[in-house]
């Protein structure tokens, strides 16, 4: 099914445009930070910009556009939003633990030691 952009009112187009641009701008800022920040532990903060409100903005825009153009509530983008919000922290936690493990294995002095006895 194809929805035409001409079917929606101008103020709604402005709202959709705002959300799309805000989401894309956050994703771009996240990518720039990902390139510029110096260490790995600082870099993992940058892509969460794209996965939190970067995704949120574009999903809001998509929901608004298809709901208004189709004349009925189309909210399946919520699924992508929820999915990304729940899964990205899992990935980053696993990666951060892997990075900590590797840095500790190499005795990198910038990484905090394990608290308590080491489990073998």
């Amino acid at each position: 099914m194809i929805y035409s952009a001409a079917d929606i009112p101008v103020w709604m187009a402005v709202v959709v445009a705002f959300f799309v641009l805000a989401g894309a701008a956050l994703a771009l800022i996240g990518a720039i930070g990902f390139l510029r920040l110096p260490t790995f532990y600082e870099r993992i903060h940058a892509p969460t910009l794209a996965t939190s409100w970067g995704t949120g903005g574009i999903m809001c825009a998509s929901i608004l556009f298809f709901s208004v153009a189709g004349g009925r509530l189309v909210a399946h983008e919520v699924l992508i939003g929820v999915f990304i919000t729940v899964t990205t922290p899992v990935t980053f936690m696993l990666l951060a633990r892997a990075a900590l493990h590797r840095d500790r294995f190499e005795n990198n002095p910038k990484v905090p030691r394990r608290t308590g006895p080491v489990k073998l």
Binding site: S4, A5, A6, I8, P9, V10, M12, A13, V14, V16, A17, F18, V20, L21, G23, A24, I58, F65
Partner: peptide
């Protein structure tokens, strides 16, 4: 509204 959307989506 088509022009607004087209521009915004292209920039995004």
């Amino acid at each position: 509204s088509a022009i607004i959307l087209f521009t915004a989506v292209s920039v995004a």
